[in-house]
Design a protein around this nucleic acid. Structure first.
Lengths: 201, 201
DNA sequence: GTCTATACACGGATAGAC
DNA sequence: GTCTATCCGTGTATAGAC
């Protein structure tokens, strides 16, 4: 039997990702986590906001490692970026367009309503930019370009998730990755063209 | 005194945009709209979902017209796109990073939880793509390219909104527009470079 | 059509037995 | 540390006076 605290965080992560924070009740989290309701307040004395802060930070780290792992792939950078988008698209399809960015919905919900949690989401995005930028620099991209590219990558991914979760099949997620490898191509080497039509996603 | 129904829709639009749908109560909507609570059910017999559907469709049309108006500006397309991003950034700053896309938060909230409303958001995004694509075609962009460009434009805008509302000042919204006019430049004429540093936003 | 009062469920939070 | 019972506010929805 895994840790109760861990199960609670897994449940809140999954539910926040799919339903948002205000759309998810603590009772539902306890139910999904197969944990007694009181355990939530035992492990997260600050209540829902406490749990949400931890959820945002933990999910943010995990998703960063998951996505940035593609940047260390054996292929060239442009291919790596395309692979990352294709992988995100595959998860999306497998989960019926539910599992996209784990913090995006919450980030929009709290941006103007809950300052501590807004900061938590901001720290996650900033972390992605810093760590991702370092990855790109290690691949030979100049620092200033690396920062612009990783921001463009995250921007495209988040925007594509919004459209894809709403529109589903008509929208092709990989198409959104096109602008990013285009930019990578400019910074790193010759641009590859015609890479947007293949890939079933 | 304006129409009660109209005031209710204005209130729901503004509140959904800032807090999302599940974070907004009908009582709060009535309060902001300065309308009696019962009027909501008078004008929207289907309750919250009914009101939300109307809100999504109406806000979607208005925002489309607002944004696409920039595509008809007197300058070249690249400049027009940059101006659109700059205008969106200005509104964001003026409203303390609250007023971004009016349907994005709701779209993520309902994507996996409310199929009729998910479809309403999907229809809005599809409408933006179709109408926006036609605008670009009128400016001389070939049909296939126009579709890719307008999707890229919306994707970048939505992604930039997520990052900007969360991170605030550190993030420069106009930077996100770079990839889009880059693509426009490829499709339409010579690329302009070095356009990402100016503009205070 | 306008507005108030209220029903009923569910939200977050807490107390306290075990 | 686990689990149940319960408090109280708020949420959606409805009834019905005016």
């Amino acid at each position: 039997m895994t840790n109760t605290r861990a199960r609670i965080l897994e449940a809140s992560t999954e539910l926040f990702r799919r339903q948002g924070m205000s759309g998810t009740g603590l009772k539902q989290i306890a139910e999904v986590a197969k944990a007694p309701f009181g355990s939530i307040y035992h492990f997260f004395p600050g209540g829902k906001d406490d749990l949400a802060g931890e959820t945002i930070r933990r999910a943010g780290r995990e998703y960063r490692d998951l996505v940035l792992a593609f940047f260390a792939g054996p292929d060239d950078l442009v291919t790596n970026v395309e692979t990352a988008f294709a992988a995100a698209a595959a998860v999306l399809v497998e989960t019926d367009y539910a599992d996209a960015c784990p913090i995006a919905t919450v980030a929009l919900e709290v941006a103007s309503t809950n300052e501590p949690l807004r900061q938590a989401t901001a720290e996650v995005f900033t972390d992605w930019i810093e760590v991702g930028g370092r990855h790109l620099e290690q691949r030979g991209v100049p620092p200033e370009a690396a920062r612009g590219l990783i921001i463009g990558f995250i921007t495209s991914l988040e925007g594509a998730f919004v459209l894809a979760r709403s529109r589903r099949p008509p929208y092709r997620l990989v198409g959104a990755g096109r602008a990013v490898p285009g930019g990578v191509g400019v910074a790193v080497g010759p641009r590859r063209r015609g890479c947007e039509a293949e890939s079933g996603l």
